[in-house]
Design a protein around this nucleic acid. Structure first.
Lengths: 330, 330
DNA sequence: GGCCTAGCCTATAACGTTGTACAAGCTATG
DNA sequence: CATAGCTTGTACAACGTTATAGGCTAGGCC
């Protein structure tokens, strides 16, 4: 920057002012500086800028694992939206462990970023509140439902109810639910299960706890859950995987065992990951408005970062959803 | 750091020395400093450290799109390996456009990272060489095969030959190849196609250009390619997708049209993404040793960063591969 | 004519670390 | 007991920016 200043015959600070689009600079001076910059191929040192300004123009994204398609697709979108607003996204994988989540919340990772998009899976609201630090944090997902936090989420219960209603409208009466979590009522599994129960009730179909199976939210979780169900002899004519990975694993297992989908058993999921469209048969699921989630969570976080007041209360944003009826449950 | 120094009754630099594990510090002094650090909850400012040292301890990873499963899985592994060595990974999506690739190579992104893992798809070796800058760059993939660069790649031709041989051994004689790129001989499509041709030759099966179809390396590319092939009336009894996404798209399209897999047509892919295991039928493919690629590329890049000499010539690392025989082509 | 304001630019001091150079204390040696 | 050599600690400058405060000019107003 010194060289640029010398070449343009102005002071260091004037070059800085040009770069920062300071208002009161004569066009002629500005041009001289820009010419010098172009000639010397100067690029501002971002580290020094960060040190002085206290901003890194990076956003932190904490998720359990990038290799999970839902998170990969979300991360990709978030990065594109953030780039449009002049920010980068630094991703941290927590592996869904409390220790990693905590270190992402308060460790060096936090220093590198101006704000955090946080998908907690294990930490509770109290712990997060105690360690959230001064910089803005926006929660993604449902694990935290607390007015102290900004939260971007989806209409879990409504969407689950809608897809359950769709299965019911197709004449299914014994709809197995895969991916429940014991005792949960407020997190994604609980909310979606709740939507399922609402839809049953609305249709006058009795709820059977034997149809609710716990499992990991992964393909192999769904596969073994449906295997267990078949082994137990509980009859069912449809499977609702609480996310697409579970549903796809279940679909795979059903087909391996020679069960026809959707003729014998219909299958539905939740998330609308790309893979769902190309499964065989293609997977009926619900699209939770990922584009909207990405747009609005980035916008909210950047507003918190750049906005003056620290916002007394958390904002709650719920993205809309859309049913994707495909061949696994037409 | 000032506060810590004052609390411990030592100088600023002594605190810095403790943090940097400088050798000549009396245990008593060191303990005083550590106590003060613990009491005050001090954390070193990474930005200042970067400014002073010129290192960020971040590695750049340039790929086309994180929502592509292969890249998502690779990124996830790379991040874990890097974390084990005290580095973070900053991901940049190029969208496979030359402009983005170039800006990732020489723009501000470069400043933020000590070295680059670069998956070029459009830029040629000359352009990259001209703009690579001073910091280390390790190439991933096959697009660049040039002794000037460090390169971590896989045994494309051998693996493609092996999987083709497997299809041949199953009695298939008309194996369609999806995902070729016109004129290419040195990039992934070209190398894999070449392996296919070698295997045909070794088995004494004549090569038929009508079986080679160009398409995007995505699920819908594979789907429309196989659709085109069926429409053209060219007979085939197997499909080799040059990556798993293509193969999965093709598989989907075949099943939709009522073609039995593997009875009528066998399907094979390349990459062994997680999705392949859970496709229905599960996808026969080749695992290109992603774990090895992740380990070795990070190790190489960090060696280049921390090593003294800038390494006159590029190193070439080829990971091993493994056939994954599944139901789509048993 | 003197004073004030707006517009434009600059000198200097930070931001929080690490590298360099050197000083002080201690031990071993002749 | 002086000296050399090692160990341990310190002061100061530097990394490349931006913030603060203020200087200088030109024009308008009383």
């Amino acid at each position: 920057m010194n060289d640029v200043a010398r070449a343009a015959g102005v002071s260091l600070k004037t070059v800085s002012n040009v770069l920062n689009e300071y208002e009161f600079i004569r066009p002629a001076t500005k041009q001289k500086v820009l010419d010098a910059i172009a000639e010397l191929g100067y690029e501002a040192n971002l580290t020094a800028r960060s040190l002085r300004s206290g901003k890194t123009r990076m956003l932190g994204l904490v998720l359990s694992d990038l290799s999970i398609p839902y998170y990969a697709e979300l991360a990709s979108r978030l990065m594109n939206v953030a780039a449009g607003r002049g920010y980068r996204v630094l991703v941290e994988q927590s592996g869904a462990t409390a220790a990693h989540e905590l270190s992402a919340l308060q460790g060096p990772f936090r220093q590198l970023t101006d704000g955090l998009l946080f998908t907690p899976l294990t930490l509770d609201a109290g712990t997060i509140a105690a360690h959230r630090g001064a910089k803005p944090v926006v929660m993604l997902g449902e694990h935290i439902a607390d007015l102290r936090f900004d939260l971007v989420t989806m209409k879990n219960a409504e969407a689950a109810a809608a897809i359950t209603a769709h299965l019911l409208s197709g004449g299914r009466r014994r709809i197995a639910v895969l991916g429940a979590a014991a005792g949960d009522t407020a997190d994604s599994p609980g909310l979606r299960l709740n939507g399922y129960r609402q839809a049953l009730k609305a249709a006058g179909v009795e709820f059977d706890p034997a149809l609710v199976v716990e499992c990991d939210w992964r393909r192999d979780g769904g596969a073994s859950a449906v295997g267990g169900l078949l082994g137990s002899g509980v009859p069912f004519d449809a499977v609702f995987g609480l996310n697409d990975a579970i549903a796809l694993g279940a679909l795979h297992e059903l087909l391996i065992r020679g069960i026809q989908v959707p003729d014998d058993v219909a299958v539905a999921g939740f998330d609308d990951i790309e893979e769902a469209r190309f499964a065989s048969p293609s997977l009926t699921t619900v699209s939770p408005g990922m584009a909207e989630i990405a747009e609005r969570s980035i916008a909210l976080l950047i507003d918190r970062i750049e906005g003056a007041e620290p916002a007394a209360e958390g904002l709650r944003i719920e993205a809309g959803f859309e049913l994707k009826i495909r061949d696994s449950a037409p």
